[in-house]
Amino acid sequence: MNIRKNSEAERLSFWEKLYLPEIAKGMGITFRQMFKPKFTRQYPEEVWIPTGSYRGRPVLVNEDDGERCVACGLCSRVCPALAIEVQAAETDRDKERYPEKFEINMLRCIYCGFCEEVCPEEAIVMSKDYDLVFTSQEEAILGKDKLLVHISKLQDRLEFLRQYK
């Protein structure tokens, strides 16, 4: 095979080889782009509200009579980033156990959603929260106080899970 045949010089026509006309064409394109509508979203003013399929910060589902979680530790086991720590304790309710301590280290979490997928109680789901700001490493470890979210605020996600999980 004649490898020279495929060299750049062989493929280009005279005008293309001149560079300048092609550059001018390219500049025409970019010039036209300048007047096209913009895609930028003015973020803090214009907030984006994700759909149910969005995987934001994982939260615990809180029902009227308390959290669903039974502290089985499966989410902690499956979490590839080892972000979750669960400590179980006994409760008088029927389900016998509840998480005495449930902490997610948001600096470790990679929002993979495995915890949600593995949970046998549908007790941990991915929320729509995406703007997480911390000023220290300790603050990034969310305890039950920050994790428990009432079920009424998680309807979109639960509906999504019902359909597609």
């Binding site: 080892l82 720590e85 280290n105 470790r108 490493q137 300790e138 990034a140 470890i141």
Partner: peptide, 13 residues
Amino acid sequence: SRLDKFGAFNDRW
């Protein structure tokens, strides 16, 4: 144990 093995200074466990 798994947790002890992979823990870092900023993990509470």
